[in-house]
């Protein structure tokens, strides 16, 4: 039973990404959308480390249109994080057994 976790709030503002990563299991995917994409920018310290620490087990994705809207180039995201569009979001939702929103 794999899960697509979505996080939509900045990890600098709220604890939802931390909480999500603390509950995600190997084989799950985590997708950062809306304000959460600011956490995907490379060069950050704490958040980048948290994402890297989760990556051996989980795949981490970030919504490209939300990155672009916030002036973060797609090539400036934390290494290993994949950039997807809305179609990619749909694919992630379809290929995992369920989705869980960390609102």
């Amino acid at each position: 039973m794999s899960t697509l976790h979505t996080v939509n709030k900045s990890p600098y503002e709220r604890g939802s990404l931390d909480s999500c990563l603390a509950h995600a299991l190997p084989g799950d995917a985590v997708l950062l959308i809306e304000d959460a994409v600011v956490g995907a920018r490379a060069g950050s310290t704490r958040v980048a480390e948290a994402l890297k620490a989760a990556m051996p087990g989980c795949t981490i994705h970030v919504l490209g249109p939300d990155l672009a809207a916030r002036g973060i180039p797609a090539d400036a995201v934390v290494e290993g994080v994949s950039v997807v569009d809305y179609g990619g979001f749909v694919d992630l939702a379809a290929t995992h057994d369920k989705s869980q929103a960390w609102l």
Binding site: M1, T3, A22, H23, L25, K98, Q100, A101, L103
Partner: peptide, 18 residues
């Protein structure tokens, strides 16, 4: 505990959060 909570979440078919 948190590990068990993660297992409980993983075992669901539909997760509703508000």
């Amino acid at each position: 505990d948190r590990a068990r909570m993660a297992q409980i979440m993983a075992a669901q078919d539909v997760v509703l959060s508000f």
